[in-house]
């Protein structure tokens, strides 16, 4: 016992001296509390679905989204490239690191849409965001503005599974104020619904530092409009400094989520996909 006490006291005395001498040694390297957010996707959009990724505060993102006709149109239409393409030009802005807003205009039905996204949760590889889109068809057909409106809201739930693999679920609700029955080519008059429920699922696999594979599925839940189908898309993300290029195949030419959910008339089960691409270019406005 006495020997133990003696050794303990001596060890503490040595520790005290070490404490003094270590004051002049190299400082302990500690990471800052200001750590960047782990981005689950390289862009704020997967293909049609929005992703949980946000723009940084003050970032301005110019987007070109382009979808061609179905590949099944054959060589005569150059596998869809000669057919009518839907194009959306968009601008999105990071109001804060947690909130972004955007506006865009699509060729089909001259749709003008406004959107916003806000982060709700970021923890332990999970990211949850709320997304909202309000769109107006601006074709001149005599309708009031209210009847031209459609809306989409969804909750985006993303999770990093591994360093390479991320997944996302996106339960959503879409509403069209005016939903007349449609005369669908080859199918006659089809019922259209005002309200649509959907579940988006997406996956991204980062194969290389600047190459990712992406796939997404929009599955309608409950009643659906006649002659419409679920939407599947898959493609590749290519990242270069300042740009993200997305090249993909999709079964829907609609670009805004509510129109993809409600109006896609290409049966994915037949393997009828069209080629498309997105280009994102980010500009900084903060400095």
């Amino acid at each position: 016992m006495t020997r133990t006490s003696r050794l303990t006291a001596f060890a503490l005395f040595v520790a005290a001296l070490v404490t003094v001498s270590s004051a002049s040694a190299q400082m302990q390297r500690t990471r800052s509390a200001q750590q960047p957010v782990d981005e689950l996707f390289w862009s704020h959009a997967i293909i049609v679905l929005p992703s949980t990724t946000q723009l940084g505060k003050g970032d301005l993102d110019f987007t070109i989204h382009h979808t061609f006709g179905p590949v099944s149109s054959g060589l005569n239409d150059l596998f869809g490239l000669d057919l009518a393409a839907n194009i959306r030009f968009g601008l999105d802005y990071g109001v804060t690191d947690q909130v972004m807003v955007g506006v865009g205009r699509s060729r089909f039905d001259k749709i003008l849409d406004f959107r916003a996204k806000a982060n709700l949760l970021q923890r332990d590889g999970w990211q949850v965001a709320g997304y909202y889109n309000a769109a107006a068809e601006t074709t001149e057909d005599g309708r009031d503005l209210a009847d031209r409106m459609s809306y989409h809201g969804s909750v985006l739930i993303g999770k990093r599974v591994t360093d390479q693999l991320t997944i996302q679920l996106a339960p959503g609700f879409s509403r069209f104020v005016y939903a007349p029955d449609q005369d669908v080519f080859g199918q006659g008059i089809q019922t259209s619904l005002n309200n649509h429920y959907s579940l988006g699922t997406a996956v991204r696999y980062e194969a290389r530092e600047n190459v990712s594979f992406i796939a997404e599925m929009i599955t309608r839940v409950g009643d659906v409009s006649g002659g419409t189908y679920n939407v599947g898309s898959f493609g590749v993300d290519l990242e270069t400094g300042g740009h993200v290029f997305q090249m993909f195949f999709t079964s829907s030419q609609w670009i805004t989520p509510q129109h993809a959910v409600a109006w896609s008339r290409t049966p994915m089960a037949d393997g009828d996909f069209g080629w498309g691409f997105n280009v994102h270019r980010v500009f900084g406005t903060g400095r």
Binding site: R31, S32, Q34, P36, L55, G58, D59, D97, G284, R287
Partner: peptide, 16 residues
């Protein structure tokens, strides 16, 4: 300095 704190004014460029 913790290099994760470097800010270039564009979030995507910071990530790159």
């Amino acid at each position: 300095v913790d290099l994760n704190t470097l800010d270039t004014g564009i979030g995507k460029r910071d990530k790159d």
